[in-house]
Amino acid sequence: MAKIRKKRVLPFDGKILVKEGDRVKPDTIIAEMSYLGERPFIVDIAGRLNIDLREIENYLTKKIGDYIEVRDTIAVRHRMAVKLEAHSPVSGILESISPASGNIVIREKVNKEEIGPVIVNCAEELDIPPEKLKSLLNKQIGDKIEKGGVIASKSLYAGMKMDYCKSPIFGEVVSIDLKTGNVIIKRPVDERKMNAFIPGIVKEIIPKRGAIIETEGELFNGVFGFGGEEYGTLGEEIIILESPLRRNQFEEYKGKIKGIITPSINVREFGDLFGEEIKKGITKDNDTGITIILMKGFGEKKLDIEIIKKYGEFKGRLIAIDGRTQIRAGAKRPEIIIPL
């Protein structure tokens, strides 16, 4: 038995929900985040105003750090009787100005209202019965759409005029209801919650990112694995096989258990599921719903006596497994933790 420390961190800054000394369970949420992925927009000011690259600063109406609304004027040039203007394609902060290229970069700033979901009734906007919407759609479910982008359009007067239903936000079309004419758009936001994964004590907080959890127990490593983190009861939700896992066994277990620890599998049997990952030597979470950990590798192998004995000892206890593997440098092998 040994002290086991697990570092639990979010990929981007978020909110920490625990403090040092807190006792946690595997399903305790210790941190969460909402990453908006604000995009940079490069605007060619010199080109728009037809000026020398190095002169752009003389024509800008904003400076670095300024907040700019979409369609705001960002540069103006008066030439004889003509006024040339450049407008912002997005709401955001002016991040940089480059006289060398004549460009500026505006970093998108997303307000809460722009995250969505927003419901746009395109049937009403285009004044058509909902059932007619399908043939007028410019976007389908899963498509990305810019703010002001066209969701659906209708031709009037034999094409002399067009009527548009536009999106009020940048996002992804998540649903189209042809009965009501409603189209729902939501900005893709990376929302994640980080759990503790193992029962233990919060030993250290990593500001804005996560924490280190400590427990005592047994730690084993497999040689290769598939799937991400799972925890459950050994012998029920997570099982150990003494001989190679067969494909038909795997199909039977799907939906019934969370993890399988086995000596080996045959590459050919699982090629369609895991072939690409095996080739690269890097595996991650997958949609099979079962985490598999190989203790010996590939082919016809048997489990070590030691592991079989441990199984007998720890059957019925909580076990936490992580099948993610990386063979190349900075190598990571699949983990099995039995907290005691």
Partner: peptide, 16 residues
């Protein structure tokens, strides 16, 4: 056979 070669090679890869 091809299947055995795949297993053999994969084991080599994971125990570099």
């Amino acid at each position: 056979n091809e299947g055995d070669l795949e297993n053999l090679a994969t084991n080599k890869m994971i125990s570099s």
